[in-house]
Nucleic acid binder design. Structure first.
Lengths: 112, 112
DNA sequence: TAACGTTATGTATTTACAAATATAACGTAT
DNA sequence: ATACGTTATATTTGTAAATACATAACGTTA
């Protein structure tokens, strides 16, 4: 059994976490379902936890990442903004590149 | 205020954590002091926590990372093995390279 | 106007983790 | 033999985080 390298990256703004893997997963679920409550259910996450995450994201980001509405057709919902889509894409790209980078570094340690 | 990328890397063996930043710091403190208890004090870490970390390291590694002795001159002590020194060096190198890598990736997001 | 499914928020409970405390075992040195 | 400083381990206590539960506010729809 050889050693493995694991990693976590995240983006911060003003010493607050903006995006990590879990937050990106939540935003993608909102994108797929159109609502925060449905997104939370699909991730086996309590609504409150999901709301706190989304609130933290929108407070940390320079521009809104979602537009949330209360009441109306379907009770309301949450929509990812264009800016949000951009952030998700950049995070995924950087994260993927990081994996590739560490995969190269693995050569230095796997046979120790 | 522009966004920042933060990261954590660690080495695993058999799905157990072998080395992360905290563990490497502990090993270096043992190297400097010659004992686990002194290392713990120097890091403001409880002895128990330090012992648990060191125990986990030695149980995860393929070869011993420290040699611990009870009793005798000075009451005993802990010594880093050559293998341990090797692991510390490789971890530090990979970690440093990862910072550099993410510093380049930062260009993609800092102006968003 | 009553019902519905959301967002938004408060409060209590449970769980997990960290910290503190205590003590045994050990092998030199006095 | 006694003292000392260390490794090793168990037990208790305290604190922070996650979870569960409850409820208000809202704007369409029927």
């Amino acid at each position: 059994m050889s050693y493995k390298i694991k990693s976590r990256i995240w983006i911060e703004a003003n010493n607050n976490v903006l995006l990590g893997e879990g937050r990106v997963q939540l935003l993608k679920a909102i994108q797929n379902t159109g609502s925060l409550s449905k997104a939370a259910k699909s991730l086996n996450l309590s609504y409150k936890k999901a709301w706190q995450l989304l609130d933290s994201i929108n407070k940390s980001a320079k521009k809104p990442v979602t537009i949330n509405s209360i009441g109306g057709k379907g009770g309301g919902g949450a929509q990812i903004t264009e800016y949000g889509i951009l952030l998700i894409g950049v995070f995924d790209e950087i994260n993927k590149n990081c994996w590739s980078f560490l995969d190269e570094q693995l050569e230095k340690i796997k046979d120790l």
